[in-house]
């Protein structure tokens, strides 16, 4: 059993950690991202189990935000992400000579894919989080900026699925007005509701220059994460991580690699570094400045339709 001074010290550490977390979440939105908490905390001591409920989870906000984080990172989240390979299938078909070394070829693709999703979509995630009230405009602008219908379909399908999950599953637990001290979360809830309503009202109606809302994934992700109490760093990190997971999962199902190798890549320090570097690079990118940094990827994704046999929708 631990003696009294040690316990006091640990109590203080835990309280400071909780305070640090609170301050981080209040951090000005333009500040550079800090690594997610698991990254930063790896040097701190383990708390004794008996302390855990008192200290580590003493802040209701911290526990609730962790819970939301785990929900949103779950691969069982019914967004249908498994149906999309984000161009991997087409890339493999277009780069047959590289199949002599499938692992190196896949690593190249993963890196390009993460750079591309970060440069094209992450600014919309961040903008959705920072300004949830602009969801309508962000949705229109992302629709205007998505150059091929394959990517458009994938983004819209997952975005609408996210609205569905919100409405059917998350709203009840996360939309309560008293639950959150962040006024932005309240704005986000209202914004999602209004957006979902206008989406239902205008389904299928498309005037020439007056298109209705589409429901693109990236801005909705930012708004939903805000509504569920995640901080901005977590929102960005999990968005990119989920993308990497989807690509790796597609790679396993396309027989590029086995599930252990995929987990190995997912766990690797180099993937974490790549993700952090891309997030950092796009942290202050305005949506007007978002763009494709991997032109070749647009071609692969766009030509997915030309594949003779397809196992994915993108």
């Amino acid at each position: 059993m631990l003696d009294q001074p040690t316990q006091d010290l640990q109590l203080e550490i835990s309280q400071l950690e909780a305070r640090l977390h609170d301050l981080r979440s209040q951090l000005d939105v333009t500040a550079l991202p800090t690594p997610p908490s698991s990254y930063a905390d790896n040097k701190t001591q383990w708390s004794a189990p008996s302390d855990m409920y008192n200290n580590k989870f003493q802040s209701e906000d911290v526990r609730s935000s962790l819970h939301a984080l785990l929900l949103l990172s779950d691969s069982a989240l019914p967004l249908g992400s498994f149906a999309y390979s984000s161009g991997l299938e087409s890339y493999l078909a277009h780069n047959k000579p590289l199949r002599t070394n499938p692992s190196a070829s896949f690593h190249r693709f993963l890196k390009l894919s993460i750079a591309s999703i970060a440069s094209t979509s992450l600014p919309y995630v961040l903008a959705g989080y920072r300004h949830p009230e602009t969801l309508d405009t962000l949705d229109n602008d992302l629709d205007a900026s998505t150059p091929c219908i394959v990517a458009q379909r994938a983004s819209v399908a997952q975005g609408r699925a996210l609205i569905g999950v919100w409405e059917r599953s998350f709203r009840g637990s996360f939309a309560a007005p008293t639950r959150n001290t962040d006024t932005g979360a309240q704005v986000s809830v209202t914004s999602i509701e209004e957006f979902a309503d206008s989406l239902k009202a205008t389904l299928g109606e498309d005037d020439e220059y007056d298109m209705g809302p589409k429901g693109h994934f990236a801005p909705l992700w930012g708004v939903v994460c805000r509504a569920m109490g995640l901080d901005l760093q977590q929102t960005a990190y999990i968005f990119i991580l989920n993308h990497a997971k989807a690509v790796l999962s597609a790679a396993v199902r396309a027989s590029v690699m086995g599930p252990y190798q995929a987990q190995n890549i997912l766990a690797s320090q180099s993937l974490q570094q790549t993700m952090m570097a891309r997030i950092k690079r796009e942290w202050n990118t305005q949506v007007e400045e978002a763009g494709q940094v991997v032109p070749a990827l647009d071609l692969w994704v766009g030509r997915h339709e030309l594949l003779y046999s397809r196992i994915f929708n993108s």
């Binding site: 277009h94 150059p147 219908i149 458009q152 498309d206 298109m211 032109p295 071609l299 766009g302």
Partner: peptide, 27 residues
Amino acid sequence: SLSTNGDGHVTWTAARVRAGFVLVKFG
């Protein structure tokens, strides 16, 4: 091979995106 449309070295895609726009991307 990749896009043998008379030219074996052009990879391209065309899509009707929205508002009647047709967007062609090529490499």
